[in-house]
Computed example of a mutant assay.
Amino acid sequence: MFWIYILRCSDGSYYTGHTDNLGKRLASHQFGELLGYTSTRLPVKLVFSQSKPTREEALNAEQKIKGWSRAKKEAMMQGDWKKVSDLAKSKRM
């Protein structure tokens, strides 16, 4: 099982990633062990996670979500799929 996840950083920004061990990855982010984006924005909080059956599917979902607007990510985190769809349509217009 693999996971896509979104963290809210201390500055209010979001970080999206994927992993095969969500608990271990979250701890690594929280303790600043993963140098980069989140290590300079601690603490972080898990605000969304979703399981995927394969690493490829998790990576594809991560890359797709990373390209989304903040509003679209927040709609997804709230489970508002109509708003996600509406936001996708408005971007195409």
Rank of each mutant, 00 (worst) to 15 (best):
K52W: 12
E33I: 05
S28L: 09
K73A: 04
T19Q: 04
Y15H: 14
S13N: 15
S28E: 13
K45W: 05
I65G: 00
G67M: 12
I65M: 11
A75I: 05
G17N: 03
F31S: 15
V47S: 03
F48T: 01
Q50C: 13
Y14E: 02
E57N: 09
T38N: 04
Q78Y: 03
Y14I: 00
S28Y: 04
D86E: 13
K72D: 00
D80I: 01
E56M: 10
R70I: 14
L35D: 13
W68G: 00
P43T: 10
A58G: 02
G23D: 12
E62H: 02
D11K: 14
C9G: 03
L35F: 10
K64E: 15
T16Y: 03
P53K: 11
I65E: 00
R8I: 12
G17I: 00
V84F: 11
W81E: 10
P43K: 10
A71R: 13
A58N: 01
E62T: 05
S13Q: 15
S39K: 07
H18F: 10
Q30V: 05
Q30C: 05
W81L: 15
L22W: 06
K66A: 12
Q50I: 06
D86Y: 04
T19Y: 08
Y15I: 02
V44W: 02
A58L: 02
S49F: 11
S51Y: 06
N60L: 14
K82S: 13
T54S: 15
E62G: 01
H29W: 06
E74A: 09
K64G: 08
I65F: 12
P43W: 07
I6D: 00
Q78K: 14
D86G: 04
R25H: 08
A75F: 06
E62L: 04
L35N: 12
M76N: 06
G32M: 06
L42N: 13
R8G: 02
K45E: 15
L59Y: 08
R25G: 03
G36K: 07
T19P: 02
R55H: 09
Q50A: 14
L87K: 03
V84N: 05
I6Y: 01
G67F: 09
S13Y: 12
H29E: 10
S69R: 11
T54L: 07
S51G: 11
S49A: 13
Y15D: 00
S13G: 14
G36R: 05
G36M: 07
W81M: 14
Y37D: 04
S10R: 06
V47K: 05
N60Q: 14
L26G: 04
F31H: 12
T16N: 06
L46G: 01
R8T: 09
H18P: 00
G36W: 05
V47N: 02
V47F: 03
S28V: 00
E56Q: 15
G67R: 13
K82E: 14
A27T: 14
G17K: 03
K66P: 12
L87Y: 03
R41S: 09
